[in-house]
Amino acid sequence: MIRIDPRLLAAREKLSEIKVIVPVMSSKGGVGKTVIAGSLAVLLARSGVETGLLDLDFTNPGLHVLLGADISSWPEEEKGVVPPRVAGVRFMTTAYYSGDEPMPLRGKYVDEVFKEILCITNWPGVKVLIIDTPPGIRDEALDILTYIPSPRPLIVGTPSPLAIKSVEKLVKVLIDLGHEIIGLIENMASEPGPLKQLAEKYGLEYLGNIPYISNMDLLIGKPYELVDEIEPYLKVALDRIRSLIH
């Protein structure tokens, strides 16, 4: 008999109340997962959808910087912890606890943090949970695909051949596991490019391209200004996610 970690039983129960769980994934780093995950969450919340946002990049969390979140005040406790609202979103990150200190983790400890965070976090009323993930097809990605009930991955890439080759490997893994991919977003692309061809090759939905935003650094920490800039390019993705809320 396989021994089940008690924390997973509680985590699955808590997550089962959420209608749509969207891990924003890419096996390639630096393609804009954090910006897209944060923007999707803020825009969904602004449109009236109760939205949660989880930073699964434990060793290098960045969403709190992107959103300008105050990590000095911790989530309130209520039979677990309840993530505070940041830019209208219920936002959870390990940065509340690790602060600005580094948190180097070998794989088995990534797995422990994953289970602990999902076990203790309550998502009251949340309909959509957006998850920002670190690059690679390693512990965090595998934990999502193995332990989270019915995730609907959204894949991010760029037109770079390095990114395309990398993303194709992730697509294969997700298809092999039978996951329903929401679609692919091509970031830093002035027009639809090779990621659109990749989407067509695998029969996946191409959710559009986002041009390179030259003043991105000036938008860090200003979530509402950021989403005003990026919203026109995320309309298709937002509509797809909203269509999954029943």
Partner: peptide, 22 residues
């Protein structure tokens, strides 16, 4: 912090002999 997420010990503790967080 360690109470909530025990692995934050890697953020706040180092080997007392060599200073490694690994």
């Amino acid at each position: 912090a360690i109470h909530f997420v025990p692995e934050t010990i890697f953020s706040y503790y180092k080997c007392p002999v060599c200073g490694s967080r690994d």
